[in-house]
Amino acid sequence: MRNLILGAASAIMLCFSASAQIQTPQASPHSVIEQMVGLTTVKIDYSRPSARGRAVYGELVPFGRLWRTGANANTTVTFSDDVIIAGKTLKAGKYALYTQPKVDSWDIIFYTDTNNWGLPEKWDETKEAVRTSVKPEFLNRSVETLTIGMNALDADFGYLEIAWEKTMAAVKIEVPTRATALKSIEEAMSGPTAGSYFAAAQYFYQSNADLTKALTWIDAAINLTPKGEEVPFYMYRQKALIQAKTGDKEGALASAKLSLQGAEKAGNADYIKMNKDSINEWSKK
């Protein structure tokens, strides 16, 4: 009887152990972020340790030594396009992110082997796709949990920032927005629509590129408006902005007035205000 009871208890325990899963929080939670920089996707995959009262740099992370820059598996950064770091081209792809913090400078390293748990057993300099040195910034606040992200974003670049404790190291990542956009524009122009012409003109205006081309393209967008339909007020608005930037205030005023008329018919308060403000500003010059 006793053996039967023990056997039943063992069976129950086996069933319990097979079905139950104990869940506990990670000491260094996993994080994945994706950030568009211009037209390039940057993905950062890392685990985030916290200070928890410990001194970080100089103790937990010794100065002068290579650091995994995170916890657990490799911290990785993936780029959808070729990028430029410190004047060096880094091919599109996935890289392990390592650093070598020092008191007055940090080495930031993009390493081609991403299959390590922390640091490689043997460091291979031939796998350093890019290594660059940056000056750390000392913060007036304390960052409890390691934070890596893309910030200070522009259409053509962003900064990969590594912040923990009271230190932040940032490296500039330049992306090929202009080249990608131009290629897209050229491809679209093989069979352009009004929307393609408008997008091309808008991009050239915003990026301070060839405004003569921008004006040609916005006129093409306007001219492609189907007969019997009114030209969209946002197209006239874009034309007015391009004309103003070229110094053609009279043309800009005329286009802004057409945009205003269209916006009033459509009841678009934002464009009504923008056009009225511009007409008032340009009339004074």
Rank of each mutant, 00 (worst) to 15 (best):
K183R: 13
P226Y: 03
T112M: 09
Y46C: 08
G262N: 04
W67V: 12
L139G: 08
E128F: 03
L253H: 09
M1L: 07
I242C: 03
A73N: 12
D81Y: 09
L215D: 14
Q23W: 15
L119N: 04
A96E: 07
L39Q: 13
A188W: 03
L215S: 11
A188M: 01
T24Y: 03
D45I: 06
E229V: 07
N3E: 08
V231D: 09
E121T: 13
S10Q: 03
Y203V: 09
K239S: 06
N116W: 07
V143G: 00
A170D: 02
T99K: 02
N275D: 15
T126L: 01
A51S: 14
A73D: 11
A8S: 09
G93L: 02
S207F: 07
Q21P: 13
T78F: 00
T132D: 10
I242R: 01
L90C: 04
K94Y: 08
V42S: 03
A152S: 13
G70I: 12
A254L: 08
V130W: 00
W106Y: 03
K227Q: 15
S207N: 11
V83R: 02
P101Y: 01
A129Q: 03
N208C: 04
L260Y: 08
W282R: 05
S47A: 15
K102V: 08
L215R: 10
A188S: 14
I222G: 11
K213V: 05
S142Q: 14
K276L: 12
K94G: 06
S196D: 15
T78L: 07
L260P: 11
G118K: 06
W67Y: 12
A201K: 00
E229I: 00
T225Y: 04
N116A: 15
V130T: 05
S142I: 12
T180H: 12
T167E: 10
F233W: 04
K127P: 03
G7K: 01
A155R: 12
K122S: 04
V134I: 07
P49K: 06
R237G: 09
V42K: 00
T177F: 01
P49E: 02
K213G: 05
Y236K: 13
M168A: 15
D154P: 03
A92F: 04
T126D: 14
P62K: 02
R178I: 15
I272N: 06
E250Q: 13
D248P: 01
E59N: 06
S278R: 11
G38K: 03
S17H: 05
D113P: 03
Y203L: 10
K91W: 04
A221T: 09
A188G: 13
T76I: 13
K102R: 13
K239H: 02
R65N: 13
K265N: 09
L4C: 01
E186G: 10
P101T: 08
